[in-house]
């Protein structure tokens, strides 16, 4: 009797150990801790598609349906609204990022161009990718800012990533990988590695800094994902994908290994409906533009 109990305990312990090894020590979970619904005047968000965060405790919400950016400052973990940016040059913001100087960049989904603002919200002009090789038409579906303030435009018209100087001048281009279907978003990590997400194939492509071409980082993940449309990275090398149609966040490692599927579709806090842009700050807090729930949700990462 005693022997069989010991055997059971030993086998359970072995199974647990095996499970831990197979999941990996870095399996990540997202824990909801705050949802942001409105500005300081209680004007609620409408279909926000973008959210950006910087290392200075700011969050920028691309409140797409209201045609504005709203800046928040995280004070003791609470998002406090402190500025609204609403200008005619930005009628429908869908992505937002900042550079190391605090300048704000936003992609206008209507005018299909990236515009630049000073840290105080003053309009500085558009990023026109001057000097880019033909064709002259550039249609950015998304963009990201590198650690060195380089600007990376996802030009879906020609099927390429345009790498621009911090001033917006052309430096280099990398064409989308052969056999791609629909590239929806890109992300650049601290090392200058560029990641692409193909929504139809549910596949991530990668180009290391200095490389001239993209190669697959993962196999197709279509078995698990429905339509992953946005991608971001964190300081630890984790890659986050928002499955727009599935209402989930997927986390994978830099080697493409699966690290977790988080959240479900729904209306309640901690659930998502058509999540769009994601960002992760230096504390590992994950911000999600929860578009069809008209809010931005903030999650902490738990290992």
């Amino acid at each position: 009797m005693g022997n069989s109990r010991v055997r059971i305990i030993v086998s359970i312990a072995a199974m647990l150990l095996l499970a831990k090894v197979s999941i990996g020590a870095e399996a990540l979970k997202l824990r909801h801790f705050q949802s942001v619904y409105a500005d300081d005047k209680e004007a609620g968000f409408r279909s926000p598609e973008g959210v950006g965060c910087d290392g200075k405790g700011h969050i920028l919400v691309a409140d797409s349906g209201n045609g504005r950016l709203v800046r928040f400052t995280l004070i003791d973990g609470k998002a406090m609204p402190d500025k609204e940016i609403k200008v005619p040059e930005l009628s429908f913001p869908v992505r937002v990022h900042t550079n190391s100087k605090g300048e704000i960049f936003a992609l206008d989904g209507r005018q299909k161009r990236v515009v630049r603002f000073s840290p105080g919200g003053g309009f500085l002009g558009r990023v026109d990718a001057a000097g880019s090789p033909p064709p002259s038409t550039v249609i950015p579906r998304s963009f990201d800012i590198g650690k060195d303030d380089s600007i990376y435009l996802l030009d879906v018209f020609e099927g390429r990533v345009l790498m621009l100087s911090p001033e917006g001048k052309f430096l280099k281009s990398i064409y989308f990988p052969a056999g791609y279907e629909v590239i929806s978003d890109l992300a650049v990590d601290g090392k200058g590695t560029i990641f692409l997400i193909d929504s139809v194939k549910a596949m991530v492509y990668v180009a290391a800094k200095g490389s001239g071409k993209f190669s697959p980082l993962t196999e197709s993940m279509k078995e698990g994902m429905k339509f992953p449309a946005t991608i971001t990275t964190d300081a630890h090398g984790n890659i986050y994908l928002a499955d727009k149609n599935g209402g989930n966040i997927y986390i994978i490692g830099q080697d493409g290994s699966f690290k977790g599927e988080q959240l479900t579709m729904g209306w309640k806090e901690g659930q998502l409906r058509y999540p769009c842009q994601l960002c992760v700050n230096d504390k590992g807090e994950v911000f999600v533009a929860d578009r069809d729930n008209n809010r931005v949700q903030i999650f902490s990462t738990v290992r």
Binding site: G109, V156, E158, G159, V182, S184
Partner: peptide, 10 residues
Amino acid sequence: NQLHWALVGK
């Protein structure tokens, strides 16, 4: 505001 992105692809 919302474009069917396939239309402006390659």
